[in-house]
């Protein structure tokens, strides 16, 4: 989450720690004709896509996934045979997510970096690679902004203490190695993979690329040992590591390409037609399940047969 320290100070707002606090601050923010930016399924606001095509239509579901995990839900059941977005936590996450747009009137399409820069959007949730963009493209607000952990959901433990679940999500892409008879080829590529993922290699790569291209190319390595050795400031590293500890991975399942597609269809349907959110997500989860079952049958895997 990125926030403008100057604007927050002027409005007399604290940095929100939970979604509830964010919602409570919203009247003050919106009353001053400003807004809050949360990742929207109507179009991407992330820098990665923004750099290639500003008007990207690729849905950004990250906020919905974060809510899903914070409410204790999951994308798929244990065996990966069925989606779980239609159970209680999933529906609640979906309902709360669309409410930000339909009830609180948060912009559905926006360019985060420009609005953050103009101060129009003093709080925004965006990928941490936005940091690079802001560092380089917005010199006039240098020092007037900061980033912190994404807001969480507050839970009360049995002993009465409260804690905040700030789960975020991560997806990865995988490389498949097709087995060949050529053993040396296989060994070599495995060696290369190991070498590339090593902290030393990653640190060296990260430093060299930053030396060549400047701060805009600050490298976001996935290797945690290497990460703390890159030129991020120690405060930033602390924040990022804390968020990192809370990230949960979304699994890839056969037919998984259908899940994101239909979740974004469901969200857009509620945004466009103001349909009932519970009905909509349940309808679409049936379609997701159908595709998963179809793909599992194709690969000869066991399919879902009721609880």
């Amino acid at each position: 989450m990125f926030y403008r320290t100057d604007v927050m100070e002027e409005l007399g707002l604290e940095v929100p720690q939970t979604w509830q606090e964010l919602i409570e601050e919203m009247p003050t923010i919106q009353g001053n004709n400003l807004s809050v930016g949360i990742p929207t399924a109507a179009g991407s606001s992330a820098t990665a896509t923004a750099s290639t095509s500003i008007m990207s239509n690729v849905p950004d579901l990250s906020m919905y996934f974060s809510l899903l995990y914070q409410y204790g839900g999951d994308m798929y059941n244990e065996a990966g045979t069925k989606t779980r977005v239609d159970d209680e936590a999933g529906i609640r996450a979906f309902d709360d997510y669309v409410r930000y747009f339909n009830d609180y009137g948060i912009p559905t399409i926006y360019d985060f970096v420009s609005r953050f820069r103009s101060g129009e959007m003093p709080i925004g949730i965006a990928a941490y690679s936005t940091y690079n963009t802001l560092q380089v493209s917005a010199p006039e607000i240098r020092g007037l902004w900061d980033f912190t952990l994404i807001p969480g959901t507050e839970y009360t433990n049995e002993d009465g203490t409260t804690y905040i679940d700030r789960s975020d999500f991560i997806t990865g892409s995988a490389t498949m190695m097709i087995s060949t008879d050529n053993q040396t080829l296989k060994d070599n590529s495995w060696e290369f993979m190991k070498w590339w993922a090593e902290p030393d290699t990653q640190v060296q790569f990260g430093r060299e690329i930053e030396a060549l291209l400047g701060a805009s190319a600050r490298y976001a390595t996935a290797n945690r040992d290497a990460f703390s050795n890159l030129s991020w400031s120690s405060d930033d590293i602390e924040v990022l590591n804390a968020q990192w500890d809370e990230t949960k991975g979304i699994r890839e399942v056969p037919g998984g390409y259908y899940t994101g597609r239909h979740i974004s269809n469901a969200i857009r349907k509620v945004l466009n037609d103001k349909d009932d959110s519970r009905e909509t997500i349940i309808d679409y989860s049936i379609k997701i399940d159908e595709e998963i079952t179809k793909k599992r049958k194709e690969f000869g895997l066991p399919v879902y047969e009721g609880e």
Binding site: I109, L271, N272
Partner: peptide
């Protein structure tokens, strides 16, 4: 309110 031209099937 702005219309989502390319998101709304209509």
């Amino acid at each position: 309110t702005p219309i989502l031209w390319f998101i709304n099937p209509t």
